[in-house]
Simulated scan of single mutants.
Amino acid sequence: MTQPHISHPEGLPKCAAGHSARHIHDLRGLAAGGGHLVECRCRATSKHAEPDAAMAEWRRINRPARAVRKSLPAIAPPASDNVVQLDFGLGAPAPPRQRAGGGVHGRC
């Protein structure tokens, strides 16, 4: 058997998807595609000459996602009474405008 499994007393960290990992040592020479690798059902490391390098890569590719920074809430600009909002027909229809009453033909 050229690919024995290596057991770790502390166990291997699971992958990001939660699958259990296994450490395999391919006894062929490095030029023939041998070396240490750690794999699970969904991913595997590349083969390394040293077992510590394979474990370091496994931990690197399966490290927990970084927490997203909470951004400050956006501060809305103060509302102004002198701003005219143009209606492009994207929102709810505005109520019809009333004309100013006045004298003859709308003149004061």
Rank of each mutant, 00 (worst) to 15 (best):
H36M: 09
H36K: 00
H36T: 04
L37T: 05
L37A: 05
L37M: 09
V38E: 07
V38W: 01
V38F: 08
V38T: 06
V38M: 00
E39H: 05
E39F: 03
C40E: 10
C40A: 11
C40F: 03
R41Y: 10
R41Q: 14
R41M: 07
R41A: 14
R41E: 13
C42M: 05
C42G: 04
C42A: 05
C42L: 03
R43I: 02
R43D: 03
R43N: 06
A44R: 11
A44Q: 13
A44W: 00
A44K: 10
T45R: 06
T45A: 07
T45G: 03
S46G: 13
S46Q: 13
S46Y: 05
K47F: 05
K47A: 01
K47Y: 03
K47P: 00
K47Q: 06
H48V: 07
H48M: 02
H48D: 09
A49M: 11
A49D: 08
E50A: 14
E50M: 11
E50Y: 12
E50S: 15
E50P: 04
E50Q: 13
P51C: 01
P51T: 01
P51V: 07
P51I: 02
P51D: 12
P51L: 04
P51Y: 00
D52T: 10
D52C: 04
A53G: 00
A53M: 09
A53F: 05
A54I: 04
A54G: 07
A54L: 00
A54V: 10
A54K: 02
A54Y: 02
A54E: 07
A54P: 11
M55P: 03
M55F: 03
A56E: 07
A56C: 03
A56L: 01
E57W: 04
E57T: 09
E57N: 04
W58C: 09
W58L: 04
W58E: 03
W58R: 02
W58H: 11
W58N: 09
W58Q: 05
R59N: 06
R59K: 14
R60M: 06
R60I: 01
R60T: 03
R60F: 07
R60Y: 01
R60C: 01
I61E: 00
I61L: 06
I61V: 12
I61Y: 08
N62L: 02
N62I: 00
R63H: 06
R63M: 09
R63N: 08
P64M: 08
P64K: 07
P64T: 00
P64Y: 01
P64I: 06
P64D: 09
A65N: 12
A65K: 12
A65T: 09
A65Q: 10
R66D: 15
R66V: 11
R66A: 14
R66G: 15
A67P: 03
A67I: 12
A67Y: 12
A67D: 15
A67G: 12
V68A: 14
V68K: 15
V68L: 15
V68D: 08
V68T: 12
V68E: 14
V68W: 11
V68H: 11
R69C: 11
R69L: 15
R69Y: 08
R69I: 12
R69T: 14
K70H: 08
K70W: 12
K70Q: 12
K70I: 15
S71N: 13
S71I: 14
S71R: 15
S71L: 15
L72C: 04
L72S: 12
L72M: 10
L72A: 15
L72W: 05
